[in-house]
Each structure stands twice: as C-alpha cells, then as structure tokens.
Design a binder for these strands. Structure first.
Lengths: 127, 127
DNA sequence: CTGAATCCTAAAGGATACTG
DNA sequence: CAGTATCCTTTAGGATTCAG
C-alpha cells in the first residue's frame, strides 16, 4: 500500500479499474491472460526466435491448432512477430516485438511467484 | 536473462516449462489468469478488506455470480480469505492472504505494463 | 445486504486429420 | 516443416432469480 500519493492520484485509480477496457490490469490480462500466452512469451524470452515446431516442443502439451491460434492472437496484438526466413524448405521464425520484450518484467514476476508458490509446503492448516 | 544462477537451476528451467502443471509461469497463469482475478486482487491490494457489494462496485461490470465464483476460486487457492464480520445484518470481508499479498509484484507489473500499453500511440506503421 | 442456484451463450482449449 | 480445417468438450462469463 505504498503506491499512491494521496489526492487526485487516488481518484484516478478509482476510475481505471472500475471502468471498461481502459483498466491497465485488465488490459494486460486481456492480452496475456490466456492459458498458453504467458508460457509462449516466456519461451520466446528464453530461447529467442523459434520455429513453429520448435516452439511447440518447448511449450509441450499444446496442440498445433492452439499454438497457431495463440500466436495469431499475439501477432494481432503486436506482441509477437512472424518472419518467413526461407521459402523453399518453408521456414518461419516467431519472435517478440518490442512490446513483447517489454513484457519481461511481467512474465518474470509471474515465474518468480509461481516458483515460490510451488515451493510452499502448501500449509496443511485449514483454509 | 539474469534469472538463474547456473548449475542445476538452469537445466530445470528447460524442464519446468515443457512440462505439465509444474511450470511456474503456467502455475501463476492458472491461478490468476482468469479474466477478473487480477482486477479483484488489485482492488483488494488497493482498498484492503472489502465487502461483497463494495468489491462489486469497484470492479464494476462484473456480475454477482462471476464475482462470487471468482472469489470462491481465489479462496480455494488460498489467495483470498473470507471473514464473516457480522451475522445479523450479514456482512463479510474479503481480504488477501499472505499468498495474495505476495502477488503484489505480479499485479503491479501487469498494471504498469498495461498503463504503458494504453499510453502508446498504437503505432500507425504496418504490423 | 450477501451471495448461492439456475440457466444460457460464447469462447477457449483440444484431438485428429489433412494440405501447401 | 508449418500450418489449416473440422469437430468436439469444457469452461468461463453473464442475466436473472431466489434464499438466508
């Protein structure tokens, strides 16, 4: 609770997140709040430009349809860029745009928190 | 790429995110990757313990069913705690557990990124 | 007021097969 | 290799109503 100064800054906060599309938290959630999006971005952050199957291997479990769909959505939001690097043996590279790269703090925060969560003894006490 | 020291930690990274449930990024995504969860947590971070309707007002747009459902899910994952503070005029307080509080960096990272995204001129150049 | 129950729709996620 | 096309199941999200 150290975020807001006081005065007018505070009321703005009221407006953001009680609103429609323009809540920054919801905005981010809308863009990467899908099941596989954060992992895909994470993989691209770690591995750099990747081919389709390479990406599919790294994400595992994901079907080509879902991966394709997710990538399309990420492209649509300018988070991911698709580059055809070879025509004959058709090859493609998916990479992060600057928008996508800028997600690093978010993804890493999610990763760090997830690690912490996974390491917790899950406390046996009553919920 | 400053995430892991080296040793066994690094190779673990490969394994984590090609795996099942135990990918920290996916774990976090599973817990707060729903449409309204981040906003709810954000509201609770900003406002502290809140009543049901108060929360609904703050989140806006959300229906009581979805809010109730979301809160139940958050409770189930020990991110939110529900406390009955009055029986006669039935009143309840929802607040963050320590798990929930620990999400602050994630939520704020999302908020900050969202703000940045919203402020971008959306670049008129080709996608 | 708090919030659970019901019902419904849209969309996400997934399995499989097929194409350029 | 890099997807698309179908079809199907699950679930998230939402409107409304009901109950404590």
């Amino acid at each position: 609770m150290d975020d807001l100064p006081d005065e007018d800054g505070t009321e703005k906060l009221e407006v953001w997140c009680a609103g429609e599309e323009w809540c920054p938290v919801t905005t981010t959630a809308s863009l990467i709040g899908k099941k596989w999006h954060p992992v895909i971005v994470h993989r691209l952050l770690e591995h750099g430009p990747s081919g389709f199957n390479e990406l599919q291997e790294n994400v595992d479990g994901i079907s080509s349809k879902v991966l394709s769909d997710s990538l399309e959505d990420l492209e649509d939001n300018q988070l991911v860029e698709r580059e055809i690097i070879s025509e004959k043996p058709f090859r493609v590279h998916y990479s992060l745009t600057e928008y996508g790269e800028s997600l690093q703090p978010v993804i890493y925060a999610m990763r760090d928190w997830g690690m912490q969560y996974l390491n917790e003894p899950d406390d046996g006490s009553a919920a």
